[in-house]
Amino acid sequence: MPDSLEEGTIVGMTEQIDFLQLRDFAVSTAKRAAELITSRRAELVAGDGIAAHTQTKSSNVDPVTEVDTAAEDFIATTIRTARPGDGIFGEEGSNVDSTSGVTWIVDPIDGTVNFLYGVPDFAVSIGAEYQGRLVAGAVVNVARGRTYAAAAGQGATVTGPDEKPHLLRCGQTSDPALALVATGFGYGSQRRAAQAQLLTKLLLEVRDIRRIGAAALDLCRVAEGTVDAYFEHGINAWDFAAGAIIAREAGAVVHHPGFDKGSAQGELTWAAGADLAPAFEKLLAAHGATGALRG
């Protein structure tokens, strides 16, 4: 456990971890990966199309493209070169144990289906975990040119194409009936059926539901207040890591199942502004949503 938390650092017996440095490294790496993704996507579209360079993973609706793999390879190489003691936990298998205590949790393209179809909501997501807690992260909405970033104790920002950072604060809604809620769906038919049943209940008790297609961006939208809350069962650590620290630093309450739980366990991740969180959690519990959804 850390000995103290001051000015964006953890000070231990023999080392100091600078959260701002981790955040800036995540931002730089994610933005460079976004440039690679943009370039490679244009090449594929101009050639024989993205579909020709796409395979499936857990089901026939769970795609992975050659660009996902290339982006993760780039991110992993960048980390190994600049920070050789750090660990890597990547969606596409770029896993390295940490000797420094820092592990980078990487989703090279969060929202691959959006990427495949040209929907402009897919992101590079890079989060930093240290001694069991999220301490920094960056999420780049590739198509929209928006970079979300945070470091523990230092707040969260969004930077657009103008390169001017703007402080993020989540919404102040306290009533679930007035809340715009984001969610997502799994890839297995059994879980999708359970999620659909849950959604029909919640839809009657909130302002409306949004399905954006990228968990990292859902969490960033909680941070910026363009949605009031987000919930989803069965996402992985790379889906939520960077977005979770960004939402928390913007004032949200965030609950996730931890870094060692995968989508197969079907556990719940949710986030909401601090004013809304108590009532939103009660609403989820009232409909049995706080438990796992298998399948």
Rank of each mutant, 00 (worst) to 15 (best):
A182I: 03
T99Q: 11
A289V: 03
Y117L: 15
A136E: 06
A241Q: 04
R83D: 00
G160S: 07
R191M: 05
D3M: 12
S4R: 13
A182Q: 07
D239A: 10
L36F: 00
T29M: 02
R133N: 11
S28M: 08
T99N: 08
L293Q: 08
N114H: 10
E232Y: 02
G258I: 07
A52D: 14
P108S: 02
A214M: 11
V102C: 07
Q131Y: 06
S174R: 09
A279W: 01
A271Y: 10
L36T: 01
V253Y: 06
R210S: 14
R210N: 10
H166I: 13
R221Y: 14
Y117F: 14
T29C: 05
K282C: 08
R40F: 03
W238K: 03
G160N: 11
E35N: 11
V206R: 02
F19T: 05
I126W: 11
S125H: 04
G171M: 01
R133F: 10
G171F: 05
G85Y: 00
T69G: 06
F74H: 01
L204S: 13
A250H: 06
L20S: 12
A123H: 12
L284A: 04
Y187H: 13
G243E: 06
D86W: 01
Y187S: 11
R169P: 04
V254C: 09
A285P: 02
Q265D: 15
L36W: 00
E205Q: 14
V113E: 12
E163C: 10
A70C: 02
A30Q: 06
A264G: 11
S4T: 13
T112H: 02
K164C: 06
A76E: 00
V64L: 14
G213M: 09
L180E: 11
R207M: 08
A71Q: 02
F74S: 02
V119L: 15
R211V: 15
G155Q: 07
Y148A: 06
E92W: 00
G49I: 04
G295A: 09
T226P: 07
T65L: 09
I212S: 07
Q197D: 13
E92G: 05
W104R: 01
L44K: 04
H255E: 15
A82P: 07
F240D: 04
V140Y: 15
T56L: 11
L276T: 07
G266I: 07
S174A: 15
R210H: 11
W104Y: 15
A149S: 15
L219H: 05
D86I: 01
R294W: 05
Q154V: 08
T99F: 06
D48T: 13
G251E: 06
D24G: 01
G295C: 02
I75V: 09
I50A: 00
G171N: 13
Q195I: 00
A272Q: 04
G160T: 10
V206E: 02
